Amino acid sequence: MNRSAVSGRSQNKFGFLRVLFAILVILSHSPELLDGNRSREILTRLFGTISIGELAVDGFFLISGYLITASWETSRTTGQYLLKRVLRIYPGFIVAFLISLLVVGPLAGGDLASLLGRPGLRQFARMLLLGEPQLQGAFVDLPYPALNGSMWTVIYEFRFYLATMALGILGIIRHRHVYLGMTLLLMVIWVAVPHLRIGLPGAVEMVAGEVHHSIRLFALFCCGGLFYLFRDKILYDGRLAGLAAVTTCCLLFSSRLAEPGLAVFGGYVLFWVSFHARPNLLSGIDNRIDLSYGLYLYAWPVQNLLIAQTHDISPWVLFAISSALAALLGTASWVLVENPFLRLKGRGRVYQATSVPAAAD
């Protein structure tokens, strides 16, 4: 595969795919946030296994694994790599955290006075550790009272940035067959014990996350990394992509194999689409304004606020309005927060992105 086809934003469709995945998360959440009934969700009704939102998050982590592995290999130093990762995740997250806590919270019936003293310090610590904001009394009458329930994936994303750095320092990324073996081991554990739960000490879980989430999401991330590391060996062909798509759909009927199937066969389809599918008018989405991260971060609070204000809103109207408002907020986040901080690296605008989604370069 041509190197420029891998790294150049104008030559791949990662921007379009990230925005699509963020919108699919909103679509998936729209019926369930209304009354807690997931059974109306489209993909759940079709296959009875995973939701569109889970499929989208899996896609985010596949893309992230690809681009973050590339970012490690193209960074001149470990410090440069880490600076890129911090500047991409933290500024947008911190602003979204504060808006969710201090603006959305009171509008949702939350009590800002409850943040005085130690509770406020705990929220500050949660923000620095990329946790979800919490405010007493907010959204208490809704099926999902979280201020920003989508934020839970961000800390896993950042953990995998650090894991990639560790694997790079240990030389595992340079030895792609060792990386392949590690990924296969993760996949075997994931398939054999899909809901593995181990009681970890609080401090350990704070660093590593919940075991079953860590294994599942890191396996997806590493699969994306494999598509990058073996990019010179992978033949992308439309007929193979069609076969992989059919195989993915068949595996979606299996609760145990649905997401591992998405990681392998769905991953092939995803990267074929990104690099080889025929360009169209939608392919240029996200080329100039990377709104996908902000779109993802602001959708949940916007949706819950709309539900709190209009209890009888339909899922489709909720989806349409919340997508439009979250897109505006995502654009503002990019223009006013994310891009200015990315320019601190002294390299101008950064144009590749990750799974939550945040930029890879």
Results as ranks from 00 to 15, higher is better:
2 N>D: 06
10 S>Q: 11
12 N>C: 04
14 F>Q: 02
16 F>R: 07
20 L>F: 15
29 H>A: 12
41 E>D: 13
41 E>P: 10
53 G>M: 12
54 E>A: 14
56 A>Q: 11
61 F>K: 11
64 S>C: 11
76 R>I: 05
76 R>W: 01
83 L>E: 14
91 P>R: 05
99 I>D: 05
100 S>C: 10
103 V>P: 04
103 V>A: 09
109 G>Y: 13
116 L>M: 13
120 G>N: 00
126 R>F: 04
126 R>Q: 04
127 M>F: 04
130 L>H: 01
132 E>T: 11
136 Q>M: 01
141 D>P: 01
142 L>G: 01
148 N>I: 06
150 S>N: 14
153 T>F: 02
153 T>W: 03
155 I>W: 12
160 F>V: 09
160 F>T: 09
168 G>H: 08
169 I>H: 08
169 I>K: 14
173 I>H: 04
191 V>R: 06
196 L>Q: 03
202 G>L: 02
212 H>S: 10
214 S>T: 13
225 G>M: 06
225 G>T: 04
229 L>Y: 01
234 I>K: 00
254 S>N: 00
265 F>M: 01
282 L>R: 00
283 S>Q: 00
287 N>Q: 11
289 I>S: 03
308 A>I: 02
314 S>T: 14
325 L>H: 08
325 L>Q: 09
334 W>L: 06
339 N>I: 03
340 P>A: 10
340 P>D: 13
341 F>T: 11
349 R>L: 10
356 V>A: 14
357 P>A: 15
359 A>V: 14
361 D>W: 14
